[in-house]
Nucleic acid binder design. Structure first.
Lengths: 339, 339
DNA sequence: ATTAGCAGTCGGCTGTATGGAGTGCTAGCG
DNA sequence: CGCTAGCACTCCATACAGCCGACTGCTAAT
């Protein structure tokens, strides 16, 4: 039904439409590509593609535009990820190589990705549910307020202030610190939460309320790291591509800032460890992103535990280039964090 | 030259233009406000205002629009900061009251401010140059890598990994930690940097390279906190007001993401401790923000040291409301951090 | 000083004509 | 049977003309 050449036609329609932003007609196809057949033949092929709902004509007599289904076929079978240019690889090395800590490397990564793809870039903080506790530090701020610092082996540092109902002396605090570290270091964060509950009972009754407050604060910290965060960069790029949206980009930006829907989407997308997942157009409608495409890839932090990164942009985007960029950055980031 | 009534006319022109987005004519003024004079009289006043370059007519025969100079006069002499509504005050209390740490309170603040003003909100991290060292923690990650955590009394926590040329044993690390804390706790961050240099000499020669690496990492951390950061929220609001810009909002969003120019602008704006500073339109041209206005106010973190927060939006914005919101949020934030 | 009236200007909207791009269809060719 | 050339048709985009309405500036009268 759909001949080999028809698919080739679909490919060039996607490519030309992405680069020119104009519906592409049969004539311009034979001009720009050497199919060795005439425009009329291409038209027949296009009729087949339209029959299959892979392309559509915005108006009775205008060129054709890929449908969501067309893009889907393109990324699944037609797109060849062109490797990044030497300059681009170099930029990744240089730019990410200078990072000093986890926050820094993620901030740099998200900016870099926005620059490489010219889209909105998103990086999820490493999920630490499977990371392990490296160290717990308690710092008295005032007699009844203690800053709890939790350091995970992924390099992530969480902080929180605990309010104590009863003041704790310095020696007791030291004892608590030692006990906490002894019990929790090396545990997965999830397991640490349970262990924390048992610790309270090991202290004299009078101190328990305060120690319970401390343990509770740390448990909350661990929970809050599950409460995942997202870094964003390149919002300006969305504005640049505003013409590609039928309505306003306002709800899109809102959804991005809101984060929660986006995190859900990320969660559903990435399943395989490697490889870039693509979610196109209406597939994202439940998330208020019906006119956007999202590319995502998992990356592995050192404490294992997989997090995601990717880009978001109009359905009409350069999938080949962007998929390659996402893949490369994800790989490099995994390597960087693994060290 | 400019009569009392002329100024009143300017005021209503600003107000009406802001709320209607349409150039305002003499007729609509006498309809909507009770000046007790006719449209022709208003026209005479408007001629004076135009003479003074406080308003301008986009086309030969259309209503008038305030100029940058007109807005300036308005905010300096005509605007009355209407106090926030009871509901708004309540929202601030509720929303910020739940915060658990400095990062959290700033994130909430910037979102709140964006919501109250319907503009892009900006919050600068508390400058800690005058904050004091509360605690330094060293956590070995591997024999030659140590995570340095620096806790300031403003509640800010900085982290960085130091690479050691030679491994340090646990006891030595403990000794270094004690020495560092003994020397630096209580010092202003700026002073701590100098003190760090002297410490290296107190250890045996063989260990000095590694200890120098540690001290260097901490010194760098302190420096990097000067390297100021900005939180942003409400980018979607900028898109909503896109019509108010003659060109694209692309360069505006870019400037915001870039941060550096914006930080300069913030730095130049806020001088007095209290009160909201306003920078209007072309006054911001050197920063690539010639069509935007920026409202800013200082706020005081606990460790003293003043940082800024504010909003950015099109010149045509509701100055009265937004100045009130910025002032209220700055005050509340100062109080919150002061506790 | 204020007002009423009037002429003049210009933006924005509507309706019409035109050019051009692209399609679908059909008949003919290898 | 696939491919091609040609043709009639559709519809968008643009330009242009004309009209309406809003507003101003000016002048003369109060």
């Amino acid at each position: 039904m759909v001949s080999e050449r028809s698919l080739e036609v679909l490919r060039v329609i996607v490519q030309d439409y992405v680069s020119s932003r104009e519906p592409v007609g049969s004539k311009s196809i034979v001009e720009r590509h050497s199919f060795g057949v005439s425009a009329a033949t291409i038209r027949n092929d296009m009729a087949v593609l339209e029959e299959e709902e892979l392309i559509v004509a915005p108006h009775t007599s205008s060129g054709r535009v890929p449908t969501d289904k067309g893009y889907r076929l393109f990324v699944d079978h037609l797109a060849d990820l062109k490797p990044l240019s030497r300059a681009q690889r170099h930029a990744i090395e240089i730019f990410l190589g200078e990072s000093v800590d986890v926050d820094d490397v993620l901030t740099r990564t998200v900016r870099l990705l926005a620059q490489l793809t010219h889209q909105v870039a998103l990086v999820q903080y490493p999920s630490v549910s499977r990371a392990r506790v490296r160290h717990i530090e308690l710092v008295p701020l005032s007699p009844q307020r203690v800053l709890c610092v939790l350091i995970a082996d992924s390099g992530v540092v969480e902080q929180r202030v605990a309010e104590l109902p009863v003041a704790l002396g310095e020696t007791l605090l030291n004892s608590v610190r030692a006990r906490l570290n002894g019990a929790c270091v090396g545990l997965r964060l999830g397991d640490a939460v349970e262990r924390l509950r048992g610790i309270v009972d090991q202290f004299p009754e009078s101190d328990r309320p305060s120690i319970a407050a401390l343990a509770g604060a740390i448990a909350e910290q661990i929970e809050s790291t599950r409460h995942e965060r997202l870094l964003m960069a390149g919002a300006a790029n969305l504005v640049r591509t505003e013409h590609d949206f039928t309505g306003s980009i306002y709800p899109v930006l809102e959804a991005i800032e809101e984060q929660v829907e986006l995190l859900k989407l990320f969660g559903e997308m990435v399943n395989e460890q490697h490889g870039v997942s693509v979610s196109i157009g209406r597939e994202n409608a439940p998330f208020g992103l019906g006119e956007t495409s999202v590319l995502a890839s998992g990356y592995a932090g050192s404490g294992s535990g997989v997090a995601r990164l990717g880009v978001l942009g109009p359905t009409r985007m350069d999938y080949s280039n962007n998929m390659a960029a996402v893949r490369a950055v994800a790989r490099y980031l995994s390597r960087q964090l693994g060290e």
